[in-house]
C-alpha cells in the first residue's frame, strides 16, 4: 500500500517546490491522496527551501512531519538538517555537487544523482530538478511516467507546454544517472 512521506530540500531557486508540486500533481493524476507543505517565509529568498510531499492511498492525517520515508537533498545545509530525519530503511537521494560531507548513515538506502553536473554539461539548468525527480522515480516508482506527463500538463501554464518533452528527457536522464552508494565499500 502506498503511503510515501517525502522531504525535498535545497536552495531556493533550485526548483525544490516545483519538483514537489509536479510529484504531488502526478500523485493526484494516479488517484492518490496528496499533500504539499512548503516551508514558506523569508528563508525562501536565497536561503534553504524545503517541501514535504505525501502520497497515500488513504486520507492524509498530518501534512507536517518530523520523519520521512524519503529525503531528496540538494545542498549541504539540507543534508545536515534532514539526514537524521529519514526513517531506518528509508531512502536518501542527494546531488553530490557542493556536498563536502556526504551522508554517513548505514541504515539507509543512499543514492546519488549528479544532476547539477549533467544539467550544466547539457546546458539544461532549467530541468535540473526533473533529473533529480527521475532518479527518485527510478528507485521508487510511486507514480508512472504517464502520470508525470499528465501532472506536468496540469501544473504548467499552457504557454510552457512546449517544455514538457525536455522535462521528460530530464526524468529519463535522471533514471540513468542515479547510483547506489555503498558506505561499507567506501570505508574499505
Amino acid at each position: 500500500m502506498i503511503n510515501e512521506e517525502i522531504i525535498i530540500a535545497g536552495f531556493g531557486g533550485q526548483g525544490v517546490l516545483s519538483m514537489g508540486k509536479i510529484l504531488a500533481y502526478s500523485g493526484l493524476m494516479s488517484g492518490l491522496e496528496v499533500s504539499w507543505m512548503p516551508s514558506y517565509g523569508p528563508e525562501m529568498r536565497g536561503g534553504t527551501a524545503n517541501v514535504t510531499v505525501i502520497l497515500s492511498k488513504e486520507r492524509i492525517s498530518s501534512p507536517i512531519l518530523t520523519s520521512y520515508d524519503t529525503a531528496i537533498i540538494l545542498n549541504q545545509q539540507s543534508l545536515d538538517k534532514f539526514e537524521n530525519t529519514v526513517k531506518p530503511g528509508g531512502i536518501l537521494i542527494y546531488d553530490p555537487s557542493g556536498i563536502s560531507n556526504p551522508p554517513t548513515r548505514h541504515d539507509l538506502n543512499i543514492f546519488s544523482v549528479e544532476a547539477t553536473k549533467a544539467a550544466t554539461e547539457r546546458n539544461m539548468s532549467k530541468i535540473f530538478n526533473m533529473i533529480v525527480l527521475g532518479g527518485y522515480l527510478k528507485v521508487n516508482p510511486v507514480v508512472s511516467l504517464d502520470h508525470i506527463e499528465a501532472g506536468l500538463k496540469k501544473s504548467l501554464p499552457e504557454r510552457h507546454h512546449n517544455l514538457i518533452p525536455a522535462n521528460i528527457e530530464g526524468l529519463k536522464l535522471g533514471s540513468e544517472l542515479i547510483q547506489r552508494i555503498n558506505l561499507y565499500k567506501e570505508a574499505c
Partner: peptide, 10 residues
C-alpha cells in the same frame, strides 16, 4: 492559519 493557507492538497 498559515499552514492550511499555504499547503496544497487535492
Amino acid at each position: 492559519d498559515g499552514a492550511i493557507g499555504q499547503m496544497m492538497e487535492k
